[in-house]
Amino acid sequence: MTKSYEKPKLMSEDGKRHDGRLPEDLRPIKMEVGILKNASGSALVEYGGTKVIAAVYGPREAQPKHISIPTRAIIRCRYHMAPFSTHERKSPAPSRREIELSKVIREALEPAIISELYPKASIDVFIEVLNADGGTRTAGVTAAALALADAGIPMRDLVAGIAVGKVEGVLVLDLDELEDMYGEADMPIAAMPGKGVITLLQLNGVLTPEEFEEALQLAWKGLKKIYELQKEALKKRYTELSIES
C-alpha cells in the first residue's frame, strides 16, 4: 500500500482553516512558569499541539574559561527536539536544522538580555521540543523569555514569537505543521513588542512585496497577544497567592 502524498485541503470556501480557525486566530495557547525545580528559571509553552520546555541556568561561571567574555556574560543556547516529538522518530544527534535554530534563537534573545551586568559569566538557555506541530522555534523563544524572567535575569523587554504564513493564497497567523508543510510561505518572527523591535525574522517560501507587508502587520497583531499572555503567566503566581489568607 502506498502512502498518499496528495496535498490536503487547507482552506475551506467559507474562509476557515483546516482546524476551523479563521486566518487571524491563534491556536489555544498555554504558558506556565517555574515548572522545573533545578533550573534557575523555566517555562512550559504550548501553541496548540506544539509543546516546548525552556530552562535557564545561571548566570554562572563560564566553563571553559576561554569562551568567556571579559565585559559581558555569554549566552549559550540549545534548541533540541526530543526523538519522540515528530511523526517519524528523530535521531537525538543535533541536526543541521537544530544547529541553525540554536543560533537564530540565541540571536533573538541576545538584544533583550542585559548581559553587561555579568562579565565572564554564562547564561545557559535550553529549549526542548516535546511535541512538534508547527511553530516550535517561536514557541521556544517565547518560553525562553519566560524562563529568563523567572530566573530573575534583567531584560530590556520580553521576547514574543509567532509564525505567519501563506496557505492557499491566504495569509494566516500561527501556522501548524500541516499548514507549514503544504503552504506557500512560512515566516517565523520574534520581537520585543514593548520596544517595537524585531529580533528574529526568517522567511521560508515565496511572498510578493505587498504580501510581505501584510504578513508583517498580521504578525505584529499576533505578537502583541502573545506578549500579553506572557505577562499574565509571569504574574499569575503572585496574584493567586495574594488571595491566600
Binding site: 537564530v104 540571536e107 525574522l201 526568517q202 522567511l203 521560508n204 517560501g205 515565496v206 510578493t208 512585496p209
Partner: peptide, 8 residues
C-alpha cells in the same frame, strides 16, 4: 518576489 529572509 521575496523568496527568503534571514535576520542574523
Amino acid at each position: 518576489k521575496i523568496v527568503g529572509i534571514q535576520k542574523s
